[in-house]
Every structure is written in C-alpha cells, then in structure tokens.
Design a protein around this nucleic acid. Structure first.
Lengths: 313, 313
DNA sequence: CGATCACCATACCTTAGAAGTATCGCATGG
DNA sequence: CCATGCGATACTTCTAAGGTATGGTGATCG
C-alpha cells in the first residue's frame, strides 16, 4: 500500500522546466527546441512530460507536425514568460543592490555642515548612484554615534571627533576659520582681522550640545592666543549664531562654508595670526564593521570629494 | 586559455535555490533550515554558496550565531518570496485551466435558441464554472460550422443538423411545436388547434439563411399533413416572425420556448394532429477532435441539463 | 499505394551534481 | 579552558539530467 504523501510531486518544478517549456512552445517542435537549448531531443521530451505530470495538466497536443499548445498550455506560456522576467529582474536588482547601486542610505547631518559641503557631496553621490534613496536625519554627534550603533543610520557628519574602536571617522574636508561680523561693527572696517583683536569683543559661540565640538575649538584657539573669550551668547547652531551677529549681538567664528549664509548686515572677514590648529575639520563617521556596499560607494564618493576639494586649497 | 562564455553561470539558478534561501533567511541558521527542508546541513551550505556565486552577491554575513541577511539579501528575500508566490499562482491557474475551470468559451448562438433554453444552460454552466469567460457570437448554422473548423468558436447551438465526421452534434433538448397567432385571429379562439386548419391560413416562416433549417421542418410537416403552406412572409428569425404575427401578418409555427416572447396581441396555442416528427430539436455542435477541458465541462453541463429538462417531459 | 519523411516516445547507458557522513575551524560563554 | 553551537570542507553515494540508438506513427509524395 502506497502511503499518500501530502504532495505527490516526484520532482518539483524548477526554472529549467520553464526554460525548456518556453523553447518548445516557441519552436512548436521538440527537436528545434532541443537544438536551441543545446541538448538532444529525448531529454527535452522527458522534461516536458515531467512538467506536465508535475502540473497534472496536458500542456501540448502532440501532432505529426509538432507540439501544439493546449488552452492550459497557452496560459502557462504566459505565466512562464512572466516568471522568467520576474526572476531576471530580481537577479538584476539584487546584483545592483550588491554593488551599492540600489537601496537606501541613512545619513545624519548637523547644523553648519549642511550649509554647503554636505549638499555638494550628496549631489555628487546622487549623480553617480541615482537609485540609492538618501534619507537625511538631523542629529547631534552623540545621537549619531548611538544611531550608528543601532544601525539606524549608515553614516554621520561631524566636526570634532575622538576615535572609538567600533566607529571609524574619515576626513571629508577642512575649512578655514572666518570671522562673521556686523557691517556696522568697528572690526568690519578691517580687511584681514588680527586674531588677537577678538579678545576685546564678546563672541557668539555654538553649538550647545554634546561636547567636545566646534565651540571647544573656538575657545581653545582663544586660549592659545592668550586670552579668554568674552561670551555674549551660546546658541545651538551656526545659522542662529550668524543671525545674532546680523542683529548686532557681537562677533562669531565660523567655518568658511558659512559664507553661503548671506544675511543682511553680516560680513565675513579672514583672520590673521590665528593660533594652530587654524582650520576646522568636517568628517564623516561610520561603523568600523561596515559591510554595506552602499556605504562603500558613498565613502568612495567622499574620498573623491576630498581629493578635489582639498587639492586647490 | 579559458574561452570566455557569454554567460559565466556555472549552474543556473533554479527554484530550489530560492526555497533554500528563503528557509535559511527565515531560520537565520543553516542547521534549522536544513531540518525544515529535510536535508542535512552541508548541502544547504553549498547551495547558498552557489546562489551567491551565481548572483555575484553576498546575501548573508556569517556570524557565530548564524546567518544574517545583508542589504542585498533583504531585497532578494522579498524578491524570492514574490517569485515563489508567482510560481504558485501560475501553477494553480494552469491546473484550473487544465480542469476546464479557468479560461474562455466561445459559444455561437442563433435566433430562437437564445430565447429561453440557451440562457438557462449558460447560467447553470456559469454557476459551476464561474471563472470561465463565456463569449457569445450570433451565427447561422453555416457560419457556426465554418467558425468551428477555424477554431473561432468551441461550441454552437442549432436546430437542424446533418452529421459530418469532423463535427459532432449532441442533443440539448427537444421542444413541442406551438402556433403563434394574433389574439384577434379566428384560430385564437380555439384552445387546441388541429394542425390541418393551418392549410387555410398564410404562415410566417423563418429563418431565411442556411438550409436545411427550422423552416424546412415546418414545410415538411405541412406536406406530411397533405397541404402546401401558404407563405405570407419569410423572415430571418423567430422574434421577427412573432412580431409580424403580433401586427396581424398571419400565423407562425414556433418552438415552445418562444412563448417567453410575450408580445402584445400574440397568443400561443398547442397543436393537435401534428404529423411526425412533431417535436423540434435543439442541439449543440463541436469539433469531433475536441480536447478542450473547458468544452468538456460545458458538455457535461449540457448532458446534465438534458437529463433534467427531458425527464419531466 | 507503398516508401519516405518528420515528428515524438521509449529503452538503456553515462555523467553531472545534489545529498549524505565525518570532520574541521572558530568564536562564544560558563 | 573546555564545552557548545555554528558554518565550511573533504570525500562518498545516489538521484536524475543528458546522451545514443531505436521504435512507432501519422503525413507526404512519387
């Protein structure tokens, strides 16, 4: 007595069956189809018989002139072609995803970086990888690191960083420091402002938030120059700081990319005699165990950007 | 030197790869996935490696705790599940088509058949095979046979038929002959009309078109009864004939199903003393070499219909 | 009207490759 | 530091795909 198995399929259908079926259906003839498939006729006959047995459906009527599709066969031909194209598309999409050309990149950004450099970088990346969807998240440094650990983002941008074993940082570019000053302020009359003069004027500092950050760089520079800066106000981000400068709230040290902020009444002046380090970095951070080809492609773009951005400097 | 083949795929992907991949992705672990697939662990390891090699994409990151999908792997899992369901649906649809449950049935109909019997039959069929799309074509007998030969229709309905080797006819039902007569006509006063009385009144005959047909049956009956019918008019179909009767154009012999035509002023009277054959057949015709499971299902329905329709008679 | 042709089907053999067994390597955790 | 759990590898076994030869059967043509 034969035990009734839930599925009596001796050999489950696979894509070979479909390829062979399509060939036979299109050629209308097993012999020609076999030639097209680079096999001999008998195995093809058997594969078609197997397919019919597996489906429990007669797909062809055998005539002296060849194989003619039944109604069910006509339907199955459509289905088989559809399956073939679905498989092809799945393959291609997966390959593109594996090459970092398709998918999603979650990027954390912050205040002043977003003013000029990050948009340029993202634009360049998007040009090369148009099918990667970039999702931006505004986060402070602490949040960025947390989000990287939780894999909620793939890469973050920041200025000041201390390396950790699980998070790798990579320089994007460095920027000159400039003085943002109200046009009616006395220092606005000087074309190149000596750094030491800042000792006499209150500064707007930013950002408040996770330390250390740009604010510590600014304070450190003042200390190196031998003075303690007078703080007129601490604010959250560069845009707010420059806005305060525009309304006469004092002076502000900014990275040069902040000059895209053309607020009325604000002028930017280069500094002279700035203590080392006189420049400020913009870096990106990502998981050291990164395996994502999408991030890999993005980092390549970052390196290319750094090469072009820092060569003319 | 190795010859560069157009497709470097050593072993093309097949559905087994997808089944295994889905199992591993869902279990997160080759061992459990192997158990689920009723195979041992090593072959599964190899199949996954093959799939990755074939795609050229790493689908899993191997961790000490198991297999974790990469981004490309996540995408491919979606794709694989989609392919699986497309294949399942294709299989099911094809099987249904093979059982005559899915597809299309082209049916040729004619004038008086469509009045009552054919609609009932089609309705019964549609109840049992809801996914077969019935397409109706109005055709005379000659056209029907031509269309059957060209496979433009699968089945046709008609009354008079002479068998041919390639076209099989099958009785659907037989109907009593009735007299359609205007209510103001003298014969309308008689409850059961003796057939011989028709000799004195002009008849509307139908259809014009391919002979022999119902018109020849009617004329034959009159001859058998010993008179030549006076013809008031020949028309194309039963509806027109009865319409003429309604407007006082004469009498008309109709199959009993024509009584659904309740035109004002028309009454139907049974006949008495009708020469043999006193009944008229409704048959369907189809190709003798029929292989279509859809038509097979339809013919079953026809036979069931005949059994119920002729039992009470 | 019979030989031939063009098909598909079957029988039997060969071989590729999928599955099984045993074992290794490696990281993790008591 | 050893036990555990996991994937990878080496080697064997066996299923089933592919090949060769041949049969069977309608259609075609001299």
């Amino acid at each position: 007595m034969v035990i009734a198995s839930p599925e009596n399929a001796v050999s489950p259908m696979d894509l070979r069956h479909l390829r062979y079926f399509i060939a036979v259906a299109e050629e209308g003839n097993i012999g020609r189809a076999a030639a097209r498939m680079n096999i001999s006729q008998p195995p093809l006959t058997r594969q078609i018989q197997q397919l019919e047995a597996e489906l429990g459906v007669t797909l062809f009527t055998r005539t002296p002139r060849g194989m003619e599709l039944t109604e069910a066969g006509v339907l199955f031909l459509e289905e088989a072609r559809n399956i073939r194209s679905v498989v092809e598309q799945a393959t291609e999409r997966t390959q593109r995803a594996g090459q970092g050309k398709l998918g999603r990149l979650d990027v954390a950004i912050f205040g002043s970086g977003i003013l000029d450099i990050i948009p340029k970088l993202l634009l360049a990346y998007k040009g090369r990888y148009p099918d990667v969807k970039i999702v931006l998240h505004t986060m402070h440094k602490g949040e960025q690191i947390e989000a990287l650990r939780q894999r909620r983002i793939s890469v973050g941008f920041n200025r000041i960083l201390q390396p950790t074993p699980d998070i790798t940082a990579e320089l994007v570019t460095t920027e000159e420091l400039l003085l943002a000053v109200n046009a009616r302020h006395p220092l606005a009359q000087i074309e190149v402002v000596p750094f030491a003069l800042l000792a006499d004027h209150p500064l707007v500092l930013f950002p408040t938030g996770t330390r250390p950050s740009f604010i510590d760089t600014a304070i450190g520079l003042c200390r190196s120059a031998g003075f303690i800066p007078k703080v007129s106000q601490e604010v959250g981000d560069a845009v707010t700081a420059v806005a305060l400068v525009a309304s006469g709230f004092g002076l502000c040290l900014v990275p040069e990319s902040a000059t895209v902020l053309a607020l009325p009444g604000v002028v930017y002046r280069p500094l002279r005699g700035v203590p080392e380090p006189s420049r400020v970095d913009l870096s990106c951070i990502y998981r050291s165990d990164n395996k994502s080809p999408i991030l890999e492609g993005f980092l390549e773009e970052v390196r290319a950007f750094r090469a072009t951005a820092m060569a003319p400097a």
